[in-house]
Every structure is written in C-alpha cells, then in structure tokens.
Amino acid sequence: MTTTTPQPTPAAPSRSGVHRVALVRPPVARLAEGELTHLERVPVDVDLALTQWRGYVAALGREGFTTIEVQRADDHPDSVFIEDTVVVLGQTAVVASPGAESRRGEPLEVESVLTQLGLDIRPIELPGTLDGGDVLKIGTTVYIGRGGRTNAEGIRQFRVIASGLGYSVVTVPISKVLHLKSAVTALPDGTVIGFDGTVEHRELFPRYLPVPEEKGVAVVVLAPDAVLMSSDAPQTAALIEDLGYRVVTVDISEFEKLEGCVTCLSVRIR
C-alpha cells in the first residue's frame, strides 16, 4: 500500500516551544488484524480506510495544524492509532507503555520524532502500562482510565511525572469501553461529553453533558470555538453546534470498526 501524503521534516522548536503540530501515522495493509476488545470483528476496507485517513489529515491541515507523518509501521496493525503511544503535557512527551503486547513496538518511531521536535521525553516503563487513549486532559487536571490497557503501576508512574509538571491526576475505573476516551472527551470549555450507556463514574467529572449517539462522544479540540468529530453522529453535531461551536466532521467508519475514533488518529501538540 502506498500513500502520496507528504512527510514534513520536523521543524526545530521555537523559543516558546512546539505548537499547533499533529503527529499522524498511515494505516497499514494489516489494519483489519487490529486488536478488538468490545466489538465483534467485521470486514474492514483498507483502501477506504486510507482515503478516510487522508481526509482526516487534510482536515487538520485546513484547521491550521502542521501535520507530521510518522514512518508507517507495517508489522503493527494498530499503529494508525498513534494517540495511544504518547501523552503530551505542554512540552513534555510521556511515552506510553502499551497495554497490548502486540503494540509494544509502536512508540519507538514516535519517540524519535518527538525528540527531533525538542520535547522533553519521559517514558512509562514496564511493568507499568498506559495507553494514550486512556488519558483525558482538561486544563491542569488529567483523567486516566483504569481498565484493560492501563494498569495501576502505569498510572503511578504517570502521576509522578504529571504532578511534577503541575497537573493533578484523577483515576476513572472503566470496564464498558476500550479506553477512557472511547466513553468521554471534553469540549473546549472543559465540559465532559459522553454517551450514558458507556459512561461510568460520571460523578468524577464536575461538568458532564450526555450526547445522543455513542459515536458522538469523541471530539478533537481544534480551537476555542471549534471541534472535529465523526460524521456518523449528526444529532450530536447539531447539539454541539447549538452550544455555539463550529463542528468539522470527517468520515472514519473503517476505524470505528476497530474501536477507533477521531482522537486516536493523531497526537496534537497545542
């Protein structure tokens, strides 16, 4: 499988650091072999997935992000879900320790790019495990899903790093979804949105708004007044627009078959 998507050379960070950069990674031919936890396996159209991925990358570019394409990882079917490999806290990159053994090699190339960008690298080390999809940042509070991919030791290591950077960490037990951000994300004003059928321990979130569609729970914050979300949640998009936000939608149906969402497909450095 080939892609014509350009691969920018990471730019040297400015004095104020790296901002408005999104790391992405193209889907591989073995995409359909990706790990599944809560969904039944169904056919995945890899060619369509590549087209959708290009549309996603283009949407980020139109919104002012510089996209950097990390080298394709042909031996890792899940590698397109690059968010799971790292959590960015300001100008510090906490390199993840994937909970699925099949994904353990994914962070290597991502870490190399982040090092070139000049970010401070802090790793989570085994036996600790932590997936980036379990980490939701809202201001200086970080919520971490404790489930099948992120364990207590991974959270302990992350808390040490994050607290040293001025963040507080709240652990959220999860069992109904793969990652915390499969159940909840946050609007630019910090309001947590989720689908009631999959949200657990909503009392942990100071402001919570239920949305009408399960595929509407995931948003990528583009700007203080704009979000990116799946095109397969029109009722939720209308709700968010009614709150005064501009909504950009993208078709990611092939990735949703693999428990992916819009947050999974990039690492944003704001």
Rank of each mutant, 00 (worst) to 15 (best):
L60P: 07
D131A: 11
D225F: 08
T9G: 09
V87D: 03
R41A: 15
D78L: 01
A186K: 03
V221Q: 13
L136R: 04
G244C: 14
V21T: 09
D120M: 13
R156D: 07
G154P: 05
Y56I: 02
V42Y: 02
S14M: 05
P27W: 09
A233L: 10
A152H: 14
F205H: 01
A162N: 10
E254F: 01
P210H: 01
T37N: 13
G105H: 14
L136N: 07
V177R: 05
G190T: 10
L165S: 05
G260Y: 02
E153V: 10
P234A: 07
L23F: 06
R104A: 13
T5W: 08
V28Q: 05
V142Y: 00
L108T: 14
K176L: 11
S97L: 10
I193R: 05
R25H: 07
V267D: 09
T5Q: 12
R54T: 15
G216F: 02
R202A: 13
E241S: 14
Y208M: 08
D251N: 11
P43N: 06
R146P: 00
S175P: 03
S230K: 01
Q52N: 04
G260I: 05
R104P: 00
P13S: 07
R54H: 15
A32C: 12
R207F: 07
G154I: 03
S112H: 15
V42A: 12
E256M: 06
R268S: 08
L108C: 11
E153L: 09
V88G: 01
A226V: 06
L209V: 01
L209S: 05
E200S: 13
V177H: 06
L114H: 04
I124T: 11
G55I: 06
R25A: 10
E213N: 12
I193K: 00
L136T: 12
V94R: 02
A58L: 07
P127M: 02
L228F: 03
R30T: 15
Y143A: 03
A100I: 04
E106P: 10
L178K: 10
S230L: 00
R72V: 15
D189Y: 01
L108I: 12
P210C: 02
I155V: 13
V192D: 03
V110H: 03
A226G: 04
E106V: 11
V44S: 01
